[in-house]
Design a protein around this nucleic acid. Structure first.
Lengths: 244, 244
DNA sequence: ACCTGAACACCGTTCAAGT
DNA sequence: ACCTGAACACCGTTCAAGT
C-alpha cells in the first residue's frame, strides 16, 4: 500500500523544486505520477488542496527529528510518545536548550527551507497554516517565548511578529524583492541627480557595497532576540513595581 | 492623448480589486479596456510587466500628496519641484515631524493599501521593488531612520527589517495566513488531547479570545520603534565609549 | 474502488494581415 | 503606428464510462 496521495505529493514537490511553482499543473503532476490528470482528484481534492498538501509536507522538515530515537524513516504513522507532562514537556532534547538558541535554530531552519524550496515562502502567506505540523512548530516558538519571560498575553502576538518577519525575509530573498541592487540603475541615477532621493545620497557609500544576506539575517535575529528580551524584562519591571 | 497604457492599467487594477488577482488575464483586461488581447502587448510588454505596472501605480499612493500645493490631480506628468536641498530636503511638510510619527504613518499607509488592494501585498514579495515611486518610499524610511540615530551602516538593513515585517503582516492578513483561529479545530483539539502542544495548552485562555488586528499592529509598531531606538542608542553608547 | 477519454471553458503569446 | 483574427500549446475541472 504505497499510498497514492504521497506519491502524488512527491511528484508535485519534485516538479516545483526543479521547475518552479508555475510548472505544477494538475496535468504535469499526473504525468509525472504516471497517471491521468483526473485520477488526482479523489486523492488531493483540487489544485488548491494539492498546494496545501505540499506545504504540509515541507513543514514537517522544521520539526526536530522525532525524539532522535532508533529508526527515523519518514511517516512513521502517529507521532506519539513525545512527552508525558502536560505543561512543559522537558523530555524532548530540544526543549533543554536556551530559548535564544531554540528560536534562532527554528528561524535558520525556516530560511534554509525557503532556500531549498524557493516557491514555498511566497505560498505560505496565501493560506492558513493549520496543518498539524505547522501547529507543532508554532508550539515550539510559543514555548521558547514563554521561557524567555514574555507575558502570556503577548506570546501569540510576538510569535506572529517573529514568524512574519522570518517568512517575509525568505520570501523576499527567493521571490526577488531583495534583488533591487542590480536592476534599473539608470532610473535611480536620474532620481538622485534630481535631488529626489536625499537619504539615498547620504548613504551612497553603504548602498553601493553588496549585501551579505547571511550576515544580515544573523544581525536581524540578534535584534529580534533583544526585542524579545526587552518585552520580557519590561513586563518583569512592571510586575515588580506593582508588588512594591 | 489619453495614454493607452494608463487606461490598460486602470482596467487591470479595477479587475483585481473587484474580482481578485486571478481574474486579471490578458484577455479579461483587454475586454475591459475595449480592445483585443493582442493590442495590450505593445503597451505593457507581457503579463509580468503588467503586474509590475499595477504595483507601480499603487506605490504612488504611499507618497505624501505632492507638497500639498494647489491642484493635486493624479499624474501631473513629471514630479519635479520637490525640494532644492541635496541632503535633507526639509521643504516638504512631512520631513518636519518626529521620525517615530513618520515611520508609523508610512507603516499605516502600507497596511491600509494592503487592505484596499488585497492582492498587492503577496505580489510585492515576488518582484524587485525598483519602480521610481518605490524608491521614493524607501528614501523616506531611510531618512526617518537616519533622524532616529541609526548608524549609516545599519540603515538599509533596518529598513528591510521593518518593511519586510509590514508587508508580511499585510500579506498574512489579506492572504489568509492569519485566519487560523476558525479553521480546523478538530485536528488541533486532538493534538491538544494527545499532549503534543504543551505551550498551546498553557496559553489556552489567551488563544481562545479573538485577535484585534488593528491593536496588534499598533503594539508591533511600538515594539519596532523601541527596537530602532535601541539600535540607535546602542551605537551612541558604543561611540561614546570609544572616545573615552 | 479506482481510473480513463472526451469535452468545456478558459489561459499567454506568436505571427501574418489589415488600416 | 496601431490594431485584429486565427492559431498553438497549454490550463482546471466535470461528467459519463469503463474495469
Amino acid at each position: 500500500m504505497p499510498d497514492r496521495r504521497q506519491e502524488i505529493l512527491d511528484a508535485a514537490l519534485a516538479l516545483a523544486d526543479e521547475q518552479g511553482l508555475g510548472a505544477v499543473s494538475m496535468r504535469a503532476v499526473a504525468e509525472r505520477a504516471g497517471v491521468t490528470p483526473m485520477a488526482l482528484y479523489p486523492h488531493v481534492g483540487n489544485k488548491a488542496a494539492l498546494l496545501d498538501g505540499m506545504l504540509g509536507r515541507l513543514l514537517a522538515d522544521l520539526l526536530p527529528p522525532v525524539t532522535a530515537a532508533a529508526d527515523h524513516g519518514r511517516a512513521s504513522g502517529t507521532t506519539h510518545g513525545r512527552a508525558s507532562g502536560t505543561t512543559h514537556g522537558r523530555a524532548s532534547g530540544t526543549t533543554s536548550q536556551d530559548w535564544r538558541q531554540r528560536l534562532r535554530t527554528i528561524a535558520h531552519q525556516a530560511r534554509g527551507l525557503a532556500h531549498r524550496h524557493p516557491w514555498a515562502a511566497t505560498l505560505i502567506f496565501s493560506r492558513p497554516s493549520v496543518a498539524p505540523d505547522a501547529v507543532r512548530v508554532v508550539d515550539q516558538i510559543y514555548a521558547a517565548l514563554i521561557d524567555a519571560g514574555v507575558p502570556d498575553a503577548d506570546v501569540a502576538r510576538v510569535e506572529r511578529l517573529v514568524s512574519t518577519f522570518v517568512i517575509g525575509y525568505g520570501a523576499s530573498e527567493t521571490g526577488g524583492r531583495f534583488s533591487t541592487g542590480t536592476l534599473n540603475p539608470r532610473g535611480r541615477r536620474a532620481q538622485l541627480a534630481a535631488g529626489e532621493l536625499p537619504a539615498h545620497n547620504a548613504l551612497a557609500t553603504w548602498l553601493d557595497t553588496p549585501v551579505d544576506w547571511d550576515a544580515e539575517f544573523e544581525t536581524d535575529l540578534d535584534d529580534l532576540v533583544r526585542l524579545v528580551e526587552a518585552i520580557a524584562s519590561g513586563s518583569a519591571r512592571r510586575a515588580a513595581a506593582q508588588v512594591r
